[in-house]
Write a protein that binds this DNA or RNA. Structure first.
Lengths: 198, 198
DNA sequence: AGCACAATTCAACACATGGTGAATAACGCG
DNA sequence: CGCGTTATTCACCATGTGTTGAATTGTGCT
């Protein structure tokens, strides 16, 4: 019985190997974080050698950034949150966040992003990306007073909720229906948006 | 010029090397997390060889657990939170949390704990330690209804606040006076304790 | 048919890691 | 003084890492 499959060269089995590698990278980065995921393991999960990963995506850092890329602009999704003014904006915002995190196409990149929040790279993405580039403009567009205080306040609740619901998956937060999540947390967020400040 | 310092054997310079190693471990684990900290770097920070770290504390995991050990029982500090019943318990609890995190002796172990929240080991410490062993009993002792729902709700806000204030150090949350933190977040926490549930 | 090119694997390098074991120097106690 | 014990470093080992480069095979174009 001869070895039918060649040991080197092209193996035209997979339809699009590049996409498979990227998907595997998303999966593993989301599940185990950047440091906890090796290039070789990504290759293995995609059924190819680790070198091929490097061949397609360059360095591990490059691959990480590619895996984090969102297929849509998050600001666009929050456009109609802003449109209707600050009344009820807390609830609308919360609904968008939940919808985004429940979108299977967005979930893995977001998980990869969030799971690396505590490492320096992800730390920067949060403090230089999410907060000033997304949250802060929303506050300004809503016309609330002192958005530079209110939006970080709001962020504490949103980040904590995301963390417990999607990353740590702590019950009963993780298994709570979206409607209940909105019912519980919308008042809090609304209070940070329009309530009293010290 | 002869080499005065011996190259092997005892170097009685440091008064208590063991304590220095533990302190360095706390510092580095808190700043860079478990995976990001090497045994050798801990040794270097304490001015000794990496082997000595292993000699004193055993495996890296053992050292990590030793570095996380709190010098007091956190339940004890929360005793008088429970004593006065659920009215105003949100504010009292928040004050205890802030006091604990502002205690320089407790801060490093807590940071080390929190920074590893997202890795499997720290994940277990949160979901099997903090939540059921500390928060849940408080809810029960306070006599609130459905503590298994209310305490995780409360945890989302506490965790998010801790994260932004002490780990990510996002302004203005990080630089806010404790009194203002209480003023802003106590109503939220109180609402999760005694407010309406869906 | 022939040839460039893309896809893929293998072998290897340089490096960092956690851990082990032996060697050596100083201390404390008799 | 002598001796055991402790503190400490050094030299390795096995392993896993990211990355590189060469080798090989298939595809598609002319």
């Amino acid at each position: 019985m001869t070895q039918a499959t060649p040991r080197r060269g092209r193996r035209p089995g997979a339809p699009d190997t590049r996409a498979a590698i990227l998907a595997a990278a998303r999966e593993l980065f989301a599940a185990q974080g950047y440091a906890g995921t090796s290039v070789r393991s990504i290759g293995a999960a995609a059924g190819v050698d680790g070198s091929l990963v490097h061949h397609y995506f360059g360095t591990k850092d490059d691959l990480f950034l590619a895996a984090l890329e969102l297929p849509v602009d998050p600001r666009e999704m929050l456009a109609d949150v802003v449109a209707l003014g600050p009344d009820g904006a807390g609830e609308r915002m919360l609904r968008v966040f939940l919808a985004v995190w429940d979108d299977p196409e967005l979930r893995l990149p977001l998980l990869g992003l969030a799971r690396n929040m505590l490492e320096p790279s992800g730390h920067r993405l949060l403090t230089e990306g999410f907060l000033p580039a997304i949250l802060q403009p929303i506050g300004v567009a809503l016309g609330v007073d002192r958005p530079e205080v209110r939006m970080p306040l709001l962020a504490t609740q949103v980040v904590g909720l995301i963390l417990m619901r999607y990353l740590l998956e702590v019950d009963p937060i993780a298994s709570m229906p979206a409607e209940d999540v909105v019912a519980v947390f919308a008042p809090t967020i609304q209070r940070y948006l329009t309530g009293p400040l010290p």
